[in-house]
């Protein structure tokens, strides 16, 4: 039997798409969403050095999932593009849309010209004066661009995460509320659910109240505090999410309190067993 030397363009593109999608689906997810005072980036990322979320320019941030070396190249190219634009013109002239177009062009070229497409998905976020004026662009491996309203989820569980965000995202959320929602969405649902702690998160914001460079990372004690802040308000809304380990520590004054907390936790677990029936599996994933 001879090797077929001809493959139709449709077949080639389909194969490439499938390859890229598989690669992206293996990675952990990233969520980008607007809140009252800016744009929040939350990535599930245990590394404190290999970032999935980064600063591009004064009001522009970058988030990506997929292969690290590939999106790192895109990130650096974005910084170069933005810095040259800002240097040649004015800092205010560097816009997210321009950057999204440059990325789209490059990803499109790479997808059609290279034997192996980039296995990445990128979000370019620009913070505006108000949540309505924030811009989130989602770019996929083949160079298509989407202008997303309010939130973007990328990575393996993007669809499930988007569903959670669609139901609960509001533009007037505080930072703590937005973070809680993002963490909740990233934690997954049902059998796949695992609780994410602060040490597994990479969190950053574009803060619209600041002038100049608005990007800042939230790490260490500030992140722990913020995660703890968001927890109590959201906990009752989600029976399947037992409170994070840090939450009761400051509150329980005596043995009686501790006991009742324990009981409540037991009750919660019972409920979720009834509902999902897969709780032990979820616990095992926690490790």
């Amino acid at each position: 039997m001879t090797m077929p030397f001809y493959a139709s363009p449709e077949q080639l593109m389909r194969d490439k798409s499938e390859y890229a999608r598989k690669g992206i689906a293996r990675g952990r997810s990233v969520v980008v969403l607007t809140y009252a005072d800016g744009v929040l980036f939350v990535a599930e990322n245990v590394s404190t050095a290999l970032h999935k979320v980064a600063e591009i320019y004064d009001r522009i941030g970058f988030a990506a999932v997929g292969r690290y070396n590939e999106f790192e190249n895109l990130r650096k190219a974005g910084v170069r593009y933005a810095d040259v634009q800002g240097y040649a013109n004015n800092r205010a002239d560097v816009r997210g849309l321009g950057l999204a177009n440059v990325y789209a062009q490059a990803l499109g070229t790479l997808f059609t010209e290279q034997p192996k497409p980039f296995e990445v998905e990128v979000c370019v976020a620009e913070v505006g004066d108000s949540p309505q004026r924030d811009q989130l662009y989602r770019l996929t491996y083949d160079g298509s661009v989407g202008d997303e309203p309010g939130y973007v989820a990328m990575g393996g569980q993007a669809d499930a995460i988007s569903a959670v965000l669609r139901d609960r995202h509001r533009e007037d959320m505080t930072l703590a509320e937005a973070l809680r929602l993002a963490v909740d969405a990233l934690s997954g649902t049902g059998a796949e659910r695992r609780e994410l702690t602060a040490s597994q998160l990479e969190v950053a914001v574009l803060d619209r109240r600041r002038s100049g460079r608005t990007f800042r990372r939230i790490t260490g004690a500030a992140l722990d505090e913020l995660v703890a802040q968001g927890t109590p308000a959201e906990a009752p809304a989600d029976a399947g999410a037992p409170a994070d380990a840090g939450e009761p520590a400051g509150e329980s004054a005596g043995a009686a309190d501790a006991e009742s907390t324990g009981k409540a936790a037991e009750k919660d677990t019972g409920k979720s067993d009834e509902a999902g029936g897969e709780k032990p599996a979820g616990d095992a994933d926690d490790k």
């Binding site: 593009y81 040259v84 490059a106 070229t109 059609t112």
Partner: peptide, 15 residues
């Protein structure tokens, strides 16, 4: 040459 098909802009090609 930013928009020429088949060529990467300089910011991507820079090493």
């Amino acid at each position: 040459g930013r928009d020429l098909p088949g060529r990467l802009p300089v910011e991507f090609a820079y090493t």
